[in-house]
């Protein structure tokens, strides 16, 4: 049965993932070609290179650190979907975690991977509807909502949902929760460590503590 899953899941997942992500890379340069062909405008080489170096310095570590850190949670298809659609921490991870919670599947199992992926796909659909509405009628629609609602969503959605997901997993692994929040707090607050180090330390530090606790039979 496992080999079967390889054929009907992993192989096509990989094929679709590679094809869509690489097409998206090519497509995202499309608007630049438009500027060139209609206006004759293009980025000067020196500015293009120095801008590239600057963003790579700011985000370069995240290109590798984020996919590696999230992989254990997202799985293969979930990783392809999440990194194509972005908004991973505020949309994809919560959707995956809630789908698994509602269907009560065993975390880390193959079933959990399929259920989590479907949750993520659901979040992609909602998000696509949201951004498409914003693109076409956003300016008019936003005036309908009172400013306090708009401000609340802009400022506090991320921390509220991050807190809520942390609460969800604190219930499951109460002994691990203090390490999950403690490690990044110390790295960030005491040592002022760079963000890539904070995320790696938080994820793999907590996994290491989980390993020790698991081997000692403190968690199951």
């Amino acid at each position: 049965m496992k080999d079967n899953l390889e054929e009907i899941w992993y192989k096509p997942v990989k094929k679709i993932g590679m094809a869509t992500l690489i097409t998206a890379v090519i497509g995202s340069f499309g608007p630049l070609l438009y500027l060139y062909f209609t206006r004759g405008v293009y980025p000067p080489l020196d500015a293009a290179l120095s801008a590239w170096a600057l963003v790579a310095a700011s985000f370069g570590a995240a290109y590798f650190v984020e996919p590696i850190s999230y992989y254990a949670i997202l799985g293969l298809a979930g990783t392809y979907v999440s990194f194509l659609s972005g908004n991973i921490s505020n949309l994809r991870l919560p959707a995956s975690a809630m789908a698994q919670e509602v269907l009560e599947v065993e975390e880390g199992s193959k079933k959990a991977e399929i259920i989590g992926t479907l949750g993520i796909i659901g979040s992609v659909i909602t998000n696509l509807i949201g951004v498409t509405l914003a693109a076409f009628i956003g300016m008019r629609l936003i005036e309908v909502f009172p400013p306090i609602v708009v401000d609340a969503f802009r400022d506090y959605t991320a921390p509220a949902i991050f807190g809520a997901v942390f609460g969800q997993f604190t219930m499951k692994y109460p002994k691990l929760a203090p390490f999950g929040i403690g490690i990044p707090l110390i790295l960030l607050g005491v040592f002022d460590a760079p963000l890539w180090l904070v995320i790696l330390g938080a994820v793999f530090g907590t996994i290491l503590v989980a390993r020790v606790f698991y081997q000692k039979g403190l968690i199951e």
């Binding site: 999230y70 959990a112 997901v165 499951k172 929760a177 990044p184 938080a202 907590t206 606790f213 199951e220």
Partner: peptide
């Protein structure tokens, strides 16, 4: 398999601990 479940849970707490740490240190709202 059991360890895989714990590993996923640990990874999730680590990721969201990291995401929350900035907000906790920012204080206020």
């Amino acid at each position: 398999k059991k360890w895989l479940a714990v590993l996923s849970g640990g990874a999730m707490l680590g990721v969201f601990g990291y995401l929350n740490a900035g907000s906790v240190l920012a204080l206020g709202g």
